[in-house]
Structures are given as C-alpha cells and as structure tokens.
Write a protein that binds this DNA or RNA. Structure first.
Lengths: 190, 190
DNA sequence: CGGCAGTTTGAGCGCTATCAATGAATGTGG
DNA sequence: CCACATTCATTGATAGCGCTCAAACTGCCG
C-alpha cells in the first residue's frame, strides 16, 4: 500500500486490525490534545513495524511523514497470536520490547534535555536507526521534528542553524544533514 | 523482597534476570543523563509489573519510591518464554503493550502539556490506576513527581497550590490529595 | 529542644514560545 | 516558460512560563 505525505494510515480509535511494516519512506505515529496540539510518538523508517495495540482499537494515529509504502499484516488478536506459533509471537514480543526502550529514551529527551540537546540526540538516534554514514536524510518536515521533540518549528530551525554555526553539523538543504563532529554531538546530549 | 525508600531494585546495565511485581508501596523506573538529570519513566503501584527488557541487561533503573515490597520472577530469556507456554507469553506480551500505551500518553504530557496540565493529567491518571475514590495517595516525593513530569519541585509545589486555590483539589498533607472537581480537571488536560 | 529532610513561597532571570516578516522551494495556470 | 500562489523554512523582536537561587516553614526523629 502506498501513501502520500500526511495521508492517514490509521486513526485513533479505529479498530486495530492490522500491523504494518514500512517498505519505503517514513511513517510517524502521534497523539493529539483536544485543542490540536500534537505529540509525535515515533518515526518508523524502512523495516520499521508499527500498529501494536493493547486493546481492540488503536490509541494513536499513524500517517505518512513523507510519501511512503507499507505492507499490512492482519493483526491476530492476542489469543490467537500464541496459537500461531512460537516464532511469530517471539518476533512481535521482541518488537514491542524494542518500542518500550525507544519510548524510555524519548521520554528522557522530552522531559530533561534542552532544545539543542534534543536536536543532537535526535540526529544521533536517527543515524543509528536509519543510516550508516554520517549524512542523514530527514524526509519529515520541521513541524514533524518539532512535534517529536516537544518544541516549535522556530526553535528547531534556530537549533539547526546554531549547530551549524558551531560546526557540529552541515545543513545540505533542509532535509539533509551531515554530522561533522559526532563525538562532540554525543557530549552535547549529556 | 522489601525495599526502603530510594533503595535500588535493579540498576541500568545490570543483567536482566528478573521481572518484578509490586506487592505493596510504589516503585519508580528512571533513566539518567550524565550530569545527573533524571527522568522518571513510570510509577508502579500494587500489582504493577516492571523489569521488562529487550536486551540482556536493563536499560533503566528501578528503585523504591516509598517503602515497598515486590516479588521477583526469574526472567526467562525470549527463546524460552515461548516454550514456557501460551499463557505466560500472552500475559507478558499484553503487559508490554500496556506499557507502550502508557508511554504514549506520558510522552504527550512531557512534550505538549503545560505544567498545570501535566499535574492535572498526572492526578487523573493516578486515580484511574491506583485508587477508586477521589482521594489519591501520593507516597512519592515532590522530586519524583517533578522528574516524572519533566518539571522542578518548585513548579510542582506551586502547581498544587494553584490547583487548590482554584478549587480543583484539596491538599490533605503533602502526600494526599482530594480531587474536588474531576470534571473540570479533565477539561484542564486539554 | 535542635537538626534534618522535604515542602512551600518569593524574587528574578533565561530559554523557548509567540507573533511577525522575509526568504526559499514547489506547484499551478496562463 | 514565466507570473503567481502556496507551503515550508529561516530569521527577528518580544513576552511569558518555568527554572534558578534563596529563604522560610513543616513534620519527624534523636
């Protein structure tokens, strides 16, 4: 299945019938407050699996952060997941635990890091998860990044320019960043 | 096993050999930055299960938020969890998914709610999870609450005072709060 | 009573949000 | 191919929320 940027893959409250894996592009999951404020919970790059849900319906919304393609797997309910055999159950469990670890690190950024530190940690995490080189693609918009880090787009933009001014990174267009000094970036994360 | 307040149950990086369930009191799990800043990831009340880990060692620290008692279950590695039978696997998986949902809501508070809104959401969430009445016990310290919500102890204290001044709550000592207007508290959460 | 840890309250500042404008990139229709 | 509109990103000026520093207050224990 293919989705254009900002197209919804599933909505909060929808029946959780599928689990998805990203084939191309990036997907974001997010939650909203009633007045429209948004918190992006996670980005999923190629190979990423999303759509886990504890109850019968999604508690979160998923949408394309850029044009992307995903494959959908019918979501077995919890009772039949076990019956489906050890391997499937094991894989799913392992992926859920990975999600817990990601969320813990994310909470640390949201609650205790400054804007600059959030950006540094974001770039480093993104490198580890999505790319092997020191040049990272950021196909999502500044708004997506801001809502992921609990900041505004202006603060994200100012942060990137400041990181560039201080020779941590080199901006190569607004969706591509070269990490010039990974060591120093790591120390920034505190 | 019994622990006094602030006593460590397991540390970050320790071999993850057990999963724990709370029998009495409250346990907190948290992560640290190198300079000592702390983010409390979750509180676990009676019946709460903690100590899940994706890898072979804990990525988080667990400690007693107040004097408490827990029971430890030997943590089977992922390969043998499945072999242990459907019911165990199912329960663990379900608990892990619950953790994901909690973390999503927590991230929403950390990233997008104001201090007052964080406190309101915290009190309401605490009610749902730990108590049935409109009087909630908060056995943890202000520091624990602050580090859970990404605030300082002063801001937490001022927030409680303000919520009381505006008749949302009634403070009954520093570790007990009566929710006087749950409806209005809910609207505060946005 | 004194000492200590935890909480509350006060004063002032700084980081980030808000408001506003400009610039860059992309798409659209003539 | 070019004017125009639209969206996104950057930059600037200002304000406010929450942090920092500091002091007073409370409850508890020796």
């Amino acid at each position: 299945m293919s989705f254009l940027r900002d197209q919804e893959i599933f909505g909060e409250g929808e029946a959780a019938t599928y689990i998805y894996q990203v084939q191309a592009g990036v997907v974001r999951t997010c939650k909203f407050l009633h007045d429209g404020r948004r918190q992006v919970n996670a980005f999923f790059g190629i190979g990423g699996v999303f759509g886990f849900q504890a109850g019968p319906s999604y508690g979160i919304r998923a949408a394309a952060a850029c044009d992307c393609a995903v494959t959908a797997f019918r979501r077995l309910n919890l009772e039949t997941i076990d019956a489906a055999g050890d391997r499937l159950s094991l894989q799913l469990f392992s992926l859920a635990l990975d999600g817990l670890v990601r969320d813990q690190e994310h909470a640390l950024s949201l609650g205790r890091r400054s804007a600059i530190e959030k950006l540094a940690a974001f770039l480093l995490g993104y490198t580890g998860n999505f790319s092997g080189s020191d040049v990272v693609d950021l196909p999502m918009t500044r708004r997506d990044i801001a809502d992921y880090l609990g900041l505004t787009i202006e603060t994200v933009s100012r942060g990137f320019t400041r990181l560039q001014d201080e020779a941590f990174i080199q901006l190569m267009g607004s969706h591509r960043v070269q990490l010039c000094d990974i060591i120093r970036l790591r120390t920034l994360c505190a």
